[in-house]
Lab assay of single mutants.
Amino acid sequence: TYVQALFDFDPQEDGELGFRRGDFIHVMDNSDPNWWKGACHGQTGMFPRNYVTPVN
Results as ranks from 00 to 15, higher is better:
T53V: 09
F47S: 03
F47R: 02
A39W: 09
D23F: 03
I25N: 01
Q4K: 14
E16R: 12
S31P: 03
R49E: 05
Q12M: 15
L6T: 05
V52R: 01
G15N: 11
K37I: 11
T44C: 07
T53Y: 08
Y2Q: 06
N34M: 13
A5G: 06
R21C: 12
W35D: 03
T53H: 14
N30I: 06
F24H: 10
Y2C: 08
D32M: 06
V52S: 04
I25C: 01
A5S: 04
F19Q: 01
W36H: 03
P11H: 06
C40H: 09
P54H: 10
C40I: 09
P33T: 08
N34Q: 12
C40S: 08
N50E: 13
G42S: 07
T1Q: 03
T44N: 09
F7Q: 15
R49N: 04
E13S: 12
D32T: 06
F19D: 00
F47N: 01
H41T: 04
H26R: 13
F24V: 14
G15Q: 07
N34C: 08
D8R: 03
F19I: 05
P54I: 09
L17P: 00
N34E: 15
G45E: 00
F24G: 03
K37S: 09
D8V: 00
Q12I: 08
P54A: 13
N50R: 13
V55M: 07
C40N: 05
M46S: 10
R21V: 10
R49S: 13
E16T: 10
Q4P: 00
L17S: 01
Q12S: 13
N50C: 07
D29Q: 10
D32S: 08
W35R: 11
D14T: 06
T53M: 13
S31H: 15
G18L: 10
E13R: 14
P48Q: 04
R20K: 14
H41N: 12
F7T: 15
W35Y: 15
V55D: 07
Y51C: 10
K37C: 07
G22R: 03
P54L: 15
M28I: 13
Q12N: 12
M28L: 14
V55W: 09
G18W: 13
V3Q: 03
I25F: 02
S31R: 08
T1C: 15
R20F: 07
D8G: 04
